[in-house]
Each structure stands twice: as structure tokens, then as C-alpha cells.
């Protein structure tokens, strides 16, 4: 069973997302702030991190955590990340494919809120499949 960590300060949204993913057969853990997410990442390494971009004290804390994960030691640095956020710092438009880069947004994929959960489930399955193929 793949283990997914959701890092999002919006409890209502993360509850709904966690419920959907659990019903799809994943083990899910929700972290509502960056420091607790950082310690959880060390305790148990997830197969996928679903990450929000903006947090109350820092508008780009999600991007910073993504970069920290990529710069970390060991297997953690290869953890797939799916960015899921209401806005992004490339305001006023949403993300596009060219935004995914090592320097600014080092993630596997992104989705903008509100999100269709069928699309989210597909993206999660794709990322986990790709990650599995990569390790084989």
C-alpha cells in the first residue's frame, strides 16, 4: 500500500482529499504545517508528497519544502511531489508545464485547486507508477 503525505494548512480540503485517497486504497497522513511535515518525512518516508504552496507565515513555504526535499540526503530526495495549490507565485495565471524546473518548482506534477478528485486520483496513480518503474 503506497503511503501518501498531504501537506496543507486547509483542514477542510486536506480531510476531503485524504478521505478520497484512503478510499482509493492508499495510506494517507495529513500534516498541516511545514515543521511537522519535515519531521514526519524523516520518521517515515512517503511514496508521494501532495504539497500546498502557500502557508500562513510564508507565501512560498511549499516551494521551499519541495527544494529542501530535493536537496536532502538519501532516498528522500527522490520522493515524488505533486503540487496542489489555489494560487502560485507566478500570479495571475495558473501553472504551466514550463514552470516545473529544478530551481523554481522541483516537482513531478501540479494541479490547481479546486481539483476534480477523479483527475487527482489519476495523477497520483501515474506518479506512483512512474516512480515504481524508475526504481525497477
Amino acid at each position: 500500500m503506497a503511503y501518501i503525505m498531504i501537506v496543507d494548512d486547509d483542514d477542510d480540503f486536506s480531510f476531503a482529499t485524504a478521505t478520497i485517497l484512503e478510499s482509493a486504497g492508499y495510506e494517507v497522513r495529513v500534516e498541516s504545517n511545514i515543521p511537522s511535515a519535515e519531521s514526519s518525512l524523516i520518521t517515515k518516508q512517503p511514496d508521494l508528497v501532495i504539497l500546498d504552496a502557500m502557508f500562513p507565515e510564508n507565501n512560498s513555504a511549499g516551494f521551499e519544502l519541495a527544494r529542501k526535499i530535493r536537496q536532502s540526503d538519501g532516498k528522500l530526495k527522490d520522493t515524488p511531489i505533486l503540487m496542489l495549490t489555489a494560487v502560485n507565485s507566478r500570479f495571475p495565471l495558473g501553472f504551466n508545464d514550463s514552470d516545473i524546473d529544478e530551481a523554481w518548482m522541483p516537482v513531478e506534477d501540479f494541479l490547481e485547486k479546486p481539483v476534480d478528485f477523479d483527475i487527482l486520483k489519476n495523477r497520483v496513480a501515474n506518479i506512483l507508477r512512474n516512480a515504481k518503474n524508475k526504481t525497477l
Binding site: 486547509d10 477542510d12 480540503f13 480531510f15 476531503a16 482529499t17 478520497i20 502557500m54 507565501n59 489555489a86 494560487v87 507565485s89 500570479f91 495571475p92 485547486k113 479546486p114 481539483v115 476534480d116 478528485f117
Partner: peptide
């Protein structure tokens, strides 16, 4: 940026729970 987030995020949560 913050305003967009503060206004859009609640609707995203409503939409998620409706789904």
C-alpha cells in the same frame, strides 16, 4: 497573491467536500 489564496481556498474546500 494572498487575496487570491484567501478567496479561492475556501471555494476549493467547499468543492472538495461536495465531491
Amino acid at each position: 497573491l494572498r487575496l487570491t489564496h484567501e478567496l479561492k481556498a475556501p471555494f476549493a474546500a467547499i468543492d472538495a467536500n461536495i465531491q
